[in-house]
Amino acid sequence: MSTPILHLDISRRFGNHFLKARADVPLTGITALEGPSGSGKTLLLRSIAGLEKGANGSILFGDIVWQSQNRFVAPQARRIGYVFQDTRLFEHLDVAGNLAYGHKRAGAAPGVLQIVSAALDLGGLLHRQVNALSGGEKQRVALGRALAMQPQLLLLDEPLSGLDQARKAEILPYIARAVQATRCPAIYVSHERRETAFLADRIMKIQAGQLSAPVECETSLPAVLTKVGLDLALFVDGHQTGLSVAAKAGTKHKIRINTDSAILSRDNPGQSSALVCLPVEIINVTALDAQNCALVLGGQGWQIRLVKSATICAQMQLETGQKVWLNVTDANLMPD
């Protein structure tokens, strides 16, 4: 059975800019939408949600026409969950009340609240007032409220923009876990590669007014939790990482790396502050343009993709089949 598709073929002028969005987005997992500020990311999300009527063209959710020359489906009929940059929680309600509000109005299945609450670890917050929550807790509740409606698509518009890097790293696994638990496809807007590298299954970009087709985001390393003396550590291909997790020895996990923090070296760097340091093979080197090259690196049954400057690739004389060392200083443990 083929994966359903969100078909986009719209154009819109806004201010002195023009956006042309033509792409087929798989309705599974998380698709990241990247682009500089003012490129039209929020405009595209609002058009998908039915909150913008000024775009020309068509939007289809599977076989259902949401927008065409002769048809425009109202936002409430599209069953979309929307998480904004600001949480927009109801301050007169506690956490349980915020979750129940959308759930009841949408007529969602009874078990959805329990699934969402468990995935986002909201059980201990249900009777807390909104103004007593931290910024990260508010974002988890906002995400939970959107998913409690049992939407058929989740849109997240830079939901972590007001948080520091530590809080972002803490919340990203919750987002991934909630999307998995509810099986709700999501489009996640960010201009920060770190977030999309940790979270996305695929990435599409807005550049010079054009939306690119989604490209798979390959930033995952398979890891096994192994006993080291009295401690536990995650190993990738037999090499110890600087990451661990509270789980049983022998369990398998997934490490997502921030490819912007990846450094290649021809020799083993020895002791370093890198969270991940291991030998890899260069599977492919492709020139993207005069400034950059795309690299595919592989290990034992896995591969990742990253972009390096053409200057670095030339200086290191990188080529297919070559063995190099991968050093990563920024990584996060994510749900498998």
Score class of each variant (00 low, 15 high):
71 R>H: 15
71 R>G: 00
72 F>P: 00
73 V>T: 12
74 A>C: 04
77 A>N: 14
78 R>I: 05
79 R>E: 12
79 R>N: 12
80 I>T: 02
81 G>H: 02
82 Y>K: 00
82 Y>D: 00
82 Y>M: 05
84 F>H: 07
85 Q>K: 07
86 D>V: 06
87 T>K: 04
87 T>D: 14
90 F>G: 08
91 E>V: 13
91 E>H: 12
92 H>M: 00
93 L>E: 11
94 D>G: 01
95 V>S: 10
95 V>D: 06
95 V>C: 07
96 A>Q: 13
98 N>D: 09
98 N>K: 06
100 A>P: 07
100 A>Q: 15
100 A>G: 09
101 Y>H: 12
101 Y>T: 03
102 G>H: 06
103 H>Y: 09
103 H>N: 10
103 H>E: 08
103 H>V: 03
103 H>S: 14
104 K>Q: 11
104 K>V: 10
105 R>T: 13
105 R>S: 10
105 R>I: 13
106 A>F: 11
106 A>N: 11
106 A>V: 05
107 G>P: 11
110 P>W: 01
111 G>L: 03
112 V>K: 06
115 I>R: 15
116 V>I: 06
117 S>F: 12
118 A>E: 15
118 A>V: 09
119 A>R: 05
119 A>Q: 06
120 L>V: 05
121 D>E: 14
121 D>K: 15
123 G>D: 14
123 G>N: 15
124 G>M: 05
125 L>H: 04
127 H>R: 12
127 H>F: 09
127 H>Q: 13
128 R>H: 14
131 N>M: 01
131 N>S: 11
131 N>W: 08
133 L>C: 02
134 S>W: 08
135 G>K: 02
136 G>W: 03
136 G>Y: 07
138 K>G: 02
138 K>P: 06
139 Q>M: 01
142 A>N: 04
143 L>F: 11
144 G>S: 11
144 G>A: 05
145 R>F: 02
145 R>W: 04
147 L>Y: 07
147 L>V: 08
147 L>S: 13
149 M>K: 15
150 Q>E: 15
150 Q>W: 11
150 Q>N: 14
151 P>D: 07
153 L>R: 10
155 L>T: 09
155 L>R: 08
157 D>Y: 07
158 E>M: 12
160 L>G: 04
161 S>H: 11
161 S>E: 07
161 S>A: 15
163 L>T: 06
164 D>E: 12
165 Q>N: 13
169 A>E: 10
169 A>H: 08
169 A>F: 01
171 I>V: 05
172 L>C: 10
172 L>E: 05
173 P>W: 07
175 I>V: 15
176 A>Q: 12
176 A>V: 03
177 R>F: 07
178 A>D: 05
179 V>Y: 03
179 V>T: 01
180 Q>F: 01
180 Q>I: 09
182 T>D: 10
183 R>G: 03
183 R>Y: 08
183 R>I: 01
184 C>M: 00
186 A>N: 07
188 Y>M: 06
188 Y>D: 05
189 V>N: 08
190 S>M: 12
193 R>Y: 12
193 R>M: 13
193 R>A: 15
193 R>H: 13
194 R>Q: 13
195 E>P: 02
196 T>I: 11
196 T>Q: 08
196 T>N: 01
197 A>M: 02
198 F>V: 01
198 F>R: 04
200 A>E: 05
200 A>D: 04
200 A>W: 05
202 R>V: 00
203 I>N: 03
204 M>T: 04
204 M>V: 06
208 A>P: 10
